[in-house]
Amino acid sequence: MAKVTAINISEKKGVIKTPIPEGVFIEDFGLKDDAHGGKWHRQVSLLAQESIDKMIALGVENLDAGKFAENLTTEGLELHTLPVGTKLQINDVLMEVTQIGKECHTGCAIKQQVGKCIMPTEGIFTKVLKGGVIRPGDEIVVTKVVR
């Protein structure tokens, strides 16, 4: 079963996010009170714990949820293999994958603190089609895969 392991938030872009007990996701905005929210295609960022584990295996220490500035840390789903257009359902929240990976900006706080950032290759971005609340442990259902 694919599931959410953490919801993470920050007031500024480009910094490590802090885990919160639940997230309110707003249609066509993203995570309430998060710096990345807004009317654009990268409203919510997701990163799999399996990707974080790759960094831990390389010897990077003290990695936990939010260190790569992801809004949702997940488990049990190889996120970066999902094509753009794939829809994910978590409780009432419906998201559509809009981008796989991203270009790391200069002076990225994550890269400076962690040494390497995996968001450029393994993180994904979504827009919120329908809002609701997400908590750690909630199941992720892939409702539509576009090939």
Rank of each mutant, 00 (worst) to 15 (best):
E96G: 05
V4F: 07
R135I: 06
K32P: 08
G123I: 03
G137P: 12
K130N: 11
L88F: 04
Q89C: 03
T126E: 00
V141K: 15
W40F: 09
M1Y: 06
V97A: 04
G76I: 05
A2C: 11
N62I: 10
G30D: 00
G123S: 05
G14K: 15
G30W: 00
V15P: 11
G101T: 04
N8D: 00
M95H: 04
Q113G: 08
A109W: 14
L46R: 06
E27Y: 05
I26M: 11
T86Y: 12
P19T: 01
K102Q: 04
L63T: 07
G37Q: 04
T81Q: 15
C117H: 07
V145C: 06
T106G: 01
V93F: 08
K144G: 07
V128Y: 11
E139L: 07
V114L: 12
A2M: 10
G107P: 11
G101E: 06
R42Q: 15
V97T: 00
N62L: 15
N62M: 14
C108T: 02
Q89G: 00
I100H: 09
K17Q: 06
K67G: 01
E11I: 09
E27Q: 15
D28M: 14
Q99I: 02
E122Y: 13
G37R: 09
A2L: 08
T143I: 12
H36I: 03
G23E: 03
E122L: 10
D53R: 14
A69G: 07
H80S: 13
L129D: 00
H36T: 08
I124S: 00
G115L: 13
K127T: 00
L94N: 05
V93R: 11
V145D: 01
E139Q: 09
V44C: 06
K17A: 03
T98W: 14
D28K: 15
K67Q: 10
G137Q: 10
N8T: 04
G66P: 12
W40V: 01
P21A: 02
L46H: 07
V24R: 02
R135E: 12
A35D: 09
V4H: 01
L58G: 04
D138M: 10
I7P: 09
T106M: 08
E122T: 05
I56T: 13
E70V: 01
